[in-house]
Design a protein around this nucleic acid. Structure first.
Lengths: 137, 137
DNA sequence: CCGAATCCCATGTGATACTG
DNA sequence: CAGTATCACATGGGATTCGG
């Protein structure tokens, strides 16, 4: 509990900040939610290639509903990860782009996705073996 | 749509693999789910410090229900990220520990959490400002 | 074109009680 | 001690409709 003589950096800190306690001032949990939810990481990845319009995103992501796209974009905007620019023209035009903060998240997402891709075969095999064992019993 | 003349490496790959399509052979989405769900990352972080018993984890994580702990541990075991060892003694004793594969995920989770912690103040401020603007209107 | 509102179902999560 | 089973509830997320 005490800060103590720990030489490894940022370990108990990490687990503490993962706590979902409401009084936790550290929005770590909500960041993980953003990355882990169904569309957050995907939207950030797409915006990494540059400013994009609403319907452009909708077409690119293919499978996302209008509602979830709007909703997820709002959350990301609220967190300051992207900016929303409205051009009051007719027809209306709204552009989204990553903020500098948002861009710093891109390499981390890529790393996570890279890890998952690199190990996908192993994981897939592990799952199949696990499922097979369950069925056998 | 066509692969085209893209020169930036590993970009469309990433976004493609984030797709939730069922026929997607790449379990990237499910990995993000594991990290992003309420308890996965937290359990992995705790196990990073060594083999731990069931009720030990339950006490350490504090707030997790028995059900969610069991359930999340099973998912992680199925993915080959941790091992479950049962000692058929009385009272029963079950120990969990990360596999080598699971341990390779630890630094990435730490990095993600580190990012969130490093930027938590900025994000918090951004949210407050966003909320204030909404209320003002 | 962009998005809000509504309806509705599936899933996630907690509480509690029960079992080997 | 380490689960499983069941219920009850909140949230996530898709489909559809309406509005500026």
């Amino acid at each position: 509990m005490e800060e103590g003589t720990r030489s490894e950096p940022g370990h108990s800190d990490v687990t503490a900040c993962l706590s979902p306690e409401p009084e936790n001032p550290c929005p770590v949990r909500s960041i993980l939610d953003r990355v882990g939810d169904k569309w957050g990481a995907q939207i950030i990845s797409h915006l990494a290639s540059g400013t994009t319009r609403f319907n452009e995103l909708k077409r690119q992501i293919e499978g996302i509903s209008q509602r979830m796209l709007t909703e997820t974009l709002r959350k990301l905007e609220r967190d300051g990860l992207l900016t929303r620019t409205v051009y009051p023209s007719i027809p209306p035009k709204v552009e989204y782009s990553l903020t500098p903060l948002g861009e710093t998240l891109v390499p981390i997402i890529r790393e996570l996705v890279g890890w998952a891709k690199a190990n996908s075969a192993v994981i897939k095999a592990s799952r199949e073996q696990y499922d097979a064992e369950q069925t056998t019993n």
